[in-house]
Simulated assay, not measured.
Amino acid sequence: MAEITAASVKELRERTGAGMMDCKKALNETNGDMEAAIDWLRTKGLAAAAKKAGRTAAEGLVGVQVLGTMGSVVEVNSETDFVAKNEQFQDFVRNVAQLALATGDNIDELSRAQYPGGGTVGEVLTANVATIGENQSLRRAALLQVKDGVVVSYVHNAAAPGLGKIGVLVALESTGDKAALEALGKQLAMHIAAANPLALNGDDLDAAMIERERAIASEKAAESGKPADIVARMVDGAIAKFRKENALMSQIFVMDNKTRIEDVVAAEAKKIGAPVTLAAYARFQLGEGIEKKESDFAAEVAAAAGTNKPEPVA
């Protein structure tokens, strides 16, 4: 058997747009013959699906699953919101979230996981691209687990049970009453969906983000014309405020608009008679961080029909 090099896999990916694992398999199946590998991908429908890979997929669904003391959240993207209503797509997201309970947050491992009914997650996703007719991608996953306590999920703007635009997981460590913990976790998850904290605690905020905020605050403070020592205190105050407003534990609870989250957790711990630790959370909002391409649908239709975009009527 011919040696399959990284360079040949890279070349096949560039020529077909197919996934790395599919390209490697194609080359193995064709003994390294590049043209035959391209034909192999075409016969499997993989190259055809790859033609859609350049199109921005920023819609889709976030899916959550909870099993015992474990919870998973995944994001699967599509090009249009219409696909999110497709039962085939919804089943895929639901099954992938279930599989993530076993594989964790590694997308490569999740893509290689065996999908119910046959094939891998990656292979089924590729087949879905071909049958549904839109580019789709498995973007990210997260897994939370506690030793004793609960993991609670919440979906905002739900399209179906466990599927929606925003998915949240909350992990609470405690030996206390599980029903009370579930109720607390649900309220905290709803807060997280609305308030979008950037970290659990102020010290966990990204250092680069803090430096960026410090630079902005410094420039603003310098414009005040105040002495350097006062400017320094103004900057420190601005950063302290930023940490409080963006760290979950110091945020003000959206349910009453007055109590800090850490105090909400402490009050519940006192109520149930057992320590409660908000160990972790995960919040996925559909399409966040994806740069969406602006498109003129009328122009695209006109171009496809071989006509110019009609002039507006005066």
Rank of each mutant, 00 (worst) to 15 (best):
V146M: 06
V151G: 00
V152A: 02
S153P: 12
S153C: 03
Y154I: 11
V155C: 11
H156A: 11
N157E: 12
N157G: 06
N157S: 12
N157I: 05
A158V: 01
A160G: 05
A160N: 10
G164Q: 06
K165M: 14
K165T: 10
V168G: 00
L169I: 11
V170C: 09
V170P: 00
A171M: 09
L172W: 05
L172R: 15
E173R: 12
E173W: 10
S174E: 09
T175D: 15
T175C: 03
K178C: 01
A179H: 07
A180Q: 09
A183W: 01
G185L: 13
K186I: 15
Q187E: 15
L188H: 08
L188I: 06
A189N: 04
A189G: 12
M190R: 06
M190K: 05
M190I: 12
H191K: 03
H191G: 02
H191Q: 02
I192T: 00
A194S: 13
A194N: 09
A195G: 13
P197S: 07
P197L: 09
A199G: 03
L200C: 08
L200F: 10
L200Y: 06
N201G: 03
N201E: 06
D203H: 01
D204T: 09
L205R: 12
D206N: 15
A207V: 08
A208C: 03
A208T: 08
M209I: 09
M209C: 00
M209H: 13
I210C: 07
I210F: 02
E211T: 04
E211P: 02
R212S: 12
E213V: 07
E213W: 05
R214N: 07
R214P: 11
A215P: 01
I216T: 12
A217T: 07
K220T: 05
K220V: 11
K220C: 02
A221C: 08
A221I: 02
A221N: 10
E223N: 12
E223A: 15
S224N: 06
G225L: 08
K226W: 14
K226Q: 15
K226C: 09
P227Y: 11
A228M: 07
D229N: 13
D229T: 12
I230L: 13
V231N: 00
R233C: 02
M234Q: 00
V235P: 04
G237N: 05
A238T: 03
A238H: 07
A240D: 11
A240T: 09
R243I: 15
R243S: 04
R243Y: 11
K244Y: 08
K244E: 13
K244Q: 15
K244G: 00
K244N: 14
E245H: 10
N246A: 00
N246M: 13
N246R: 00
A247F: 01
A247M: 00
A247E: 07
L248E: 00
S250H: 10
S250K: 10
I252V: 15
F253E: 10
M255F: 14
M255I: 06
D256W: 14
K258L: 02
T259Q: 04
T259W: 04
R260K: 13
E262W: 03
D263L: 04
D263T: 14
V264T: 07
A267W: 04
E268L: 04
K271G: 02
I272Q: 05
I272H: 08
G273T: 05
G273C: 06
P275C: 11
L278G: 03
A279P: 01
A279L: 07
A280C: 03
A280W: 04
Y281I: 14
